[in-house]
Design a protein around this nucleic acid. Structure first.
Lengths: 158, 158
DNA sequence: TAAGATTGAGCCGTCAATCTTT
DNA sequence: AAAGATTGACGGCTCAATCTTA
């Protein structure tokens, strides 16, 4: 009795295509943003997470939503604070913690980034799929996400 | 007349799911390999590319297949040579070039890595999809791969 | 002039250790 | 003892410059 099932070829093919598709699409979108003089995509995610929240956000909350390790998030936030897009204040309720806020400059940056990145998504994803395929694809990809299951939805920032 | 079509919500959702799925699945598979004491996944791809070729491979050929920048590939190869898994020889036909070969140690390493990584694929991809979904998913993902179109197929190394 | 490949400098990610507070 | 967060040290990635040969 075979306890360890070997991956069937379709599973291996899915792995290969997942790695190749994400690598090439992410590189292409990132390159479009960089060509327009914008900071990394990651910064958009942080800005949007803060702006959507409306109030202050604790770093450890963002950690789960953005799939970033704590020490890594700490460094990203530090750079964004120094650049003036994020403000960090000590947490009044929990003395160990910090609370993050987006600045006006941060809101303006996110607003300028969105058209570039959304056009890039359209060019590198939308234009390559037939009508209806995007829904099928996103539903299947969603089944592969695990990490932490506490993810909430929210649209995109348009 | 709208020349620049904004991405529809399904396209944005696909982008979000693609990033999250690839991040979490790749991290999970990489973590399984690391827990077993193996080098990064990237090394498997290089070893398999060399072993599949049967003869020597020029770095610039691998560059396109592995979606790696030239300078990056150069450093990966250098580490693998120092570790004894790859051998580099000057190219007799083109004086600028190098030719890469997998060593016996490299073949042995790849053979040991495959069961771990294939089990990881099964756990993090195969087990999360219904029968038939892997084929649909890999076909849709394949439509998103661009970078360089010179990709040949070859199975997986089982 | 361009292609194949490498390298120095600097930035970024990662690990483990650390600090503070709970 | 554990959670939130940061940091020093180290290694990998990236850019641009460089070297050699085509």
């Amino acid at each position: 009795m075979a306890m360890k099932q070997l991956p069937s070829d379709p599973v291996v093919a899915t792995w290969v295509c997942l790695v190749r598709a994400s690598t090439s699409v992410m590189a292409a979108v990132e390159a479009d943003g960089k060509a327009a003089g914008f900071p990394p995509l990651e910064w958009y995610d942080v800005l949007w997470d803060l702006e959507r929240a409306g109030s202050g956000v604790r770093p450890f909350e963002m950690e789960g939503r953005l799939l970033l390790a704590q020490y890594n998030l700490s460094r990203v936030i530090d750079r964004m604070c120094r650049a003036g897009y994020v403000e960090k204040r000590p947490c009044e309720i929990d003395g160990r913690g910090q609370v993050l806020f987006i600045t006006e400059e941060g809101k303006a940056l996110r607003r300028r980034m969105w058209p570039i990145y959304s056009a890039a998504m359209q060019r590198h994803i939308g234009a390559r799929l037939e009508p209806g395929e995007a829904e099928v694809l996103s539903n299947l990809l969603a089944k592969l996400v695990h990490w932490r299951e506490e993810t909430e939805e929210g649209s995109c920032g348009a």
